[in-house]
Amino acid sequence: MLLILCPYCQSRRAELEFRNVGAAHISRPSDPQTTTDAQWGEFLYQRDNPKGRIAERWLHIHGCGRYFNAIRDTISDVFVTTYKSGEPPPAMPSEAKP
């Protein structure tokens, strides 16, 4: 059970309050009709699956109801940071090898 800091509530809460909703910063093509099948397939299905830092989205479903972003280490599951939807991923010091 992870502890997650909701950037809207500014409160660290148990994972039970949150729903993970997958990769962050996957933007929907602005004009889908001009994309190829391959590009649309990429948008739908291709995901970074890093062993290390991942940018992902969470929904504070049993809290404020807001979607937000997080950077988390997928080896240790420790959150590096969380930030609001629409904000760019914060600049990070280069990743230390675990």
């Binding site: 059970m1 992870l2 994972e15 039970l16 729903r19 993970n20 988390r72 997928t74 080896i75 599951d77």
Partner: peptide, 13 residues
């Protein structure tokens, strides 16, 4: 678990 992880462990819940 609901999140991507390589930790080979997971939550008690």
């Amino acid at each position: 678990d609901q999140y991507v992880s390589y930790s080979q462990t997971g939550g008690l819940q």
